[in-house]
Computed example of a mutant assay.
Amino acid sequence: MTDVLVAHSTDVDKASFYKKTYLHVALAILAFAGVETVLLQTVPAELIYMMVGQRYSWLLVLGVFWLGSFMASKWSLSQSRSTQYVGLGLSVLLYAVIFLPMISVALLQDGTGNLIMQAALLTTAMFAGISAVAFTSKRDFSFLRNIITIGGFIALGLIVAGMIFGFNLGLWFSVGMVILASASILYETSKLKDTYGTQQYVGAALQLFASIMLLFWYILRILMSRRS
């Protein structure tokens, strides 16, 4: 089947693309929850602590995560459908691993998982609202690309510096990252029709999934900081 840019496809093909994209986003989130549950039940607490217990161990984990995420994103846009799913599956696994220490701490903080549920509900509500704005607004959000890119590099530099020199980035950094993640969701949603072909819904879903996970990460951090 010829892969046509979504913007140039028929209304039926557009609807099918969006339906498949958001279905795969939902499946990726469900898979993330399932894999995270398995990891929490099987990975020893000592190993989880080792991921963040030393200054450079977490830096190594982040390095592997970023490299793996780059490969997953590339594979998700492959011509091969099976390779696309390998990319999406790898991304889900990477996020489940990177979230493991923070989810463990969140469970220890309240013992019920309420913090995680609150963060999930807030993330879902924000994602739905931002998506609605992207689909209903006629504005061009392409200007967000440079803001997200520059903000991402600044955030990365601060994260690495914080780990090397041992300082806490604090609440306002998390608030800023929530704003950056929200902008990323708005940008990724608005560009769906102009960037992807009708058969690239797996790759589109991966990009949205990654932005949602970033938003979830920092919302959870904010909620956890209020308990500490």
Rank of each mutant, 00 (worst) to 15 (best):
Thr2Glu: 14
Val6Gly: 07
His8Asp: 15
Ser9Ile: 06
Asp13Leu: 08
Lys14Val: 01
Ala15Thr: 14
Tyr18Gln: 09
Lys20Pro: 04
Val38Met: 11
Leu40Tyr: 02
Ala45Val: 14
Ile48Asp: 12
Arg55Gln: 15
Leu60Val: 15
Leu62Tyr: 02
Gly63Thr: 08
Val64Arg: 00
Trp66Phe: 15
Trp66Arg: 04
Trp66Ala: 14
Met71Val: 15
Ser76Gly: 00
Ser80Ile: 02
Arg81Val: 15
Arg81Gly: 04
Tyr85Trp: 14
Val86Met: 09
Leu90Asn: 06
Leu94Thr: 10
Leu94Pro: 12
Tyr95Phe: 15
Ala96Pro: 07
Ile98Tyr: 09
Pro101Met: 03
Pro101Gly: 04
Thr112Arg: 09
Asn114Pro: 00
Met117Phe: 11
Gln118Phe: 11
Ala120Leu: 13
Ala125Trp: 08
Ala134Ile: 12
Ala134Thr: 13
Arg139Val: 05
Asp140Glu: 12
Phe143Pro: 14
Phe143Thr: 08
Phe143Arg: 03
Phe143Met: 10
Ile147Leu: 14
Ile147Thr: 15
Ile148Glu: 07
Thr149Pro: 00
Ile150Tyr: 10
Gly151Cys: 08
Ala155Phe: 02
Gly157Ala: 01
Ile159Lys: 00
Gly162Asn: 00
Met163His: 06
Met163Glu: 15
Met163Cys: 03
Gly166Arg: 00
Gly170Pro: 09
Leu171Phe: 15
Val178Ser: 10
Val178Pro: 06
Leu180Ala: 04
Ile185His: 03
Glu188His: 10
Lys191Met: 15
Tyr196Pro: 08
Thr198Arg: 05
Gln199Ile: 00
Gln200Ile: 08
Val202Cys: 05
Leu206Arg: 12
Phe209Val: 07
Ile212Glu: 11
Tyr218Cys: 01
Tyr218Pro: 07
Ile222Gln: 08
Ser225Tyr: 08
Arg226Ser: 11
